[in-house]
């Protein structure tokens, strides 16, 4: 039973040489195949280039935004520091004026 099946399988799968017309048919089909345009390949490269440009743009924009944020925070800190220094000196003036308005203190002079 098993041997019969093996034999049947061997018969079914035995190598068969192609007939003479096979090569001719293949060659004629190749000859009739329309020449492949290079356009799809170019389009693919264009897409890659576009994607790379967009990616580069995003990276540059992100970097610019980070730098701007850094400058902004620095400017904000400088502003707060400037107002702190101004406030400190105004406070000295204020206290001196206050001392002046209270004759008991008498530690400062004002014009």
């Amino acid at each position: 039973m098993s041997n019969d099946f093996d034999q049947q399988l061997r018969d079914a799968l035995r190598p068969v040489d192609p007939d003479e017309s096979f090569t001719r048919r293949v060659m004629s089909r190749i000859a009739n195949e329309p020449t492949r345009s290079r356009r799809p390949q170019r389009a693919r490269w264009a897409c890659v280039a576009l994607a790379a440009s967009v990616l580069l743009g995003i990276v540059i924009f992100h970097h610019w935004q980070l730098q701007r944020e850094q400058h902004g925070i620095e400017a904000r800190n400088q502003l707060i520091e400037a107002l702190r220094v101004t406030g400190e000196k105004l406070d000295i003036a204020y206290r001196a004026i206050n001392e002046d308005s209270h004759p008991g203190a008498g530690e400062s002079s004002r014009t």
């Binding site: 003036a93 206290r95 001196a96 001392e99 002046d100 400062s108 002079s109 004002r110």
Partner: peptide, 13 residues
């Protein structure tokens, strides 16, 4: 508008 001398702070503002 303001000219003060603070003796305490030794400062002229």
């Amino acid at each position: 508008v303001v000219e003060v001398h603070s003796r305490k702070e030794q400062a002229n503002v």
